[in-house]
Design a protein around this nucleic acid. Structure first.
Lengths: 223, 223
DNA sequence: TCTTTCTTTCACAGCGCTGTCATAAATTTT
DNA sequence: AAAATTTATGACAGCGCTGTGAAAGAAAGA
């Protein structure tokens, strides 16, 4: 049985989480904004704290930062848009997971259970990881390890690599890549991709081989 | 493109979902009650099944339970506002999401997309593949494998082969091929095709036999 | 603010691909 | 059988695409 804090200004979001969690036998406390969440976290011990990013008074990031000053409780972030996803990992706040709305309650509860379990067992936080030979990619921690050493990729390089890997063995046109990695509102040159592919390849060392060029079309991560 | 099953006894609900889904390019099947939904789920594979809770003959929960016996398709539940208590039972059955009427079709579609995406990303990506003896063609990965070894085709050769295969056993005139593979804005010689067919045949090794010449007409991929 | 890092554009070189042509081979017609 | 028509093949010039370095432009930190 876990003690869960859910902070979101939308009441129905809080209720969905509460219902599902209580059904599984957990107790749930609710906060309507970040400030309130910080206060409650100070007063009692939770097994996990779920924070919406967009909240009145104090946003999720700031709340997380604040809570981290006195507690090491696992934190899960909720965000409305995928753009915010980038920022989330830019800050090294020790966020354990993130979920983009709209989400499936089942999925969220599964993740909550996984996080708490992980945290309690004291084991290192691994997150979602894939490995191709000596190339290790941790989507959750947002880092790339090459032959045991952490690679130093720029944000765009991360994004590009992640997208390629998540669509491994799928031929991707430049347009598709622009749309998915840069966003539909990017009106730049196709060839921008080439430059980033170049940088990525340079950074991947021997594992540049996974990125194959599809002449007249685009690129593909092939394993 | 997803294959969606919507089960609801109210026709206008089904229609709203159908309209939105088809607008986004999905295919939609309808069931008017739970029994019918179970039958349809048994017969074909859906990417998601949307079940109303209150339905004649067999309610949504029972239908879900039944379907779970033979399929692991994601399920979304619909319910009227007054049936809130039912949520608990739904979650127990492994329902992926829950939407309360009246709902916004746009939001429902967003959730559907989220659920399917999550569900899919778990599995390995294989892509659309066809095989003729030792000739293996993967449309998704855009590669051709001959007797276990990857063929090295040029872009035009790929495009030409893909088009021939997608229209296998259909006679294709040179004009048709030019129009479909080269594009309507190509004003070159008919005979250009011959050269590319030649290259393709060379690259296909023993499987050149599949490309047959139709004298006075064009070509055909025959299996 | 200035500095640094990251992103995007651009120009150019190299090379592979494409389309055309001439010729040979195959098939049909006369 | 020869001529005519159609297809197969090899060669090649030109063009288009990609890779790369450099530099301008934008964003993030100090």
């Amino acid at each position: 049985m876990y003690n869960i804090l859910i902070a979101d200004d939308e009441q129905n979001i809080r209720e969905v989480i509460r219902e599902y969690a209580e059904f599984e036998g957990h107790t749930v406390a609710e906060a309507a904004d970040g400030m309130q969440a910080v206060e409650m976290a100070r007063e009692q011990d939770f097994d996990i704290i779920i924070l919406d990013i967009m909240m009145p008074r104090l946003d999720g990031f700031s709340a997380c930062k604040e809570i981290r000053k006195f507690k090491d409780t696992p934190v899960m972030m909720l965000s409305a848009r995928s753009e915010e996803y980038d920022k989330l990992f830019g800050f090294e706040l020790g966020v354990d997971d993130y979920v983009v709305k709209p989400f499936s309650p089942k999925e969220v509860m599964a993740r909550i259970n996984a996080i708490i379990k992980r945290h309690r067992s004291g084991g290192e936080q691994l997150g979602e990881t894939v490995k191709f030979e000596g190339l290790e990619i941790n989507f959750t921690a947002r880092d790339v390890i090459i032959d045991g050493e952490k690679a130093n990729l720029t944000p765009k390089e991360y994004d590009l690599l992640f997208y390629l890997v998540k669509n491994k063995n799928i031929a991707l046109t430049r347009n598709k890549l622009l749309e998915e990695v840069w966003g539909y509102d990017f009106f730049g040159d196709d060839r921008t991709i080439d430059t980033h592919i170049k940088m990525l390849r340079n950074n991947l060392g021997p594992y540049r081989k996974f990125i194959v060029t599809l002449r007249g079309m685009g690129y593909k991560f092939e394993v």
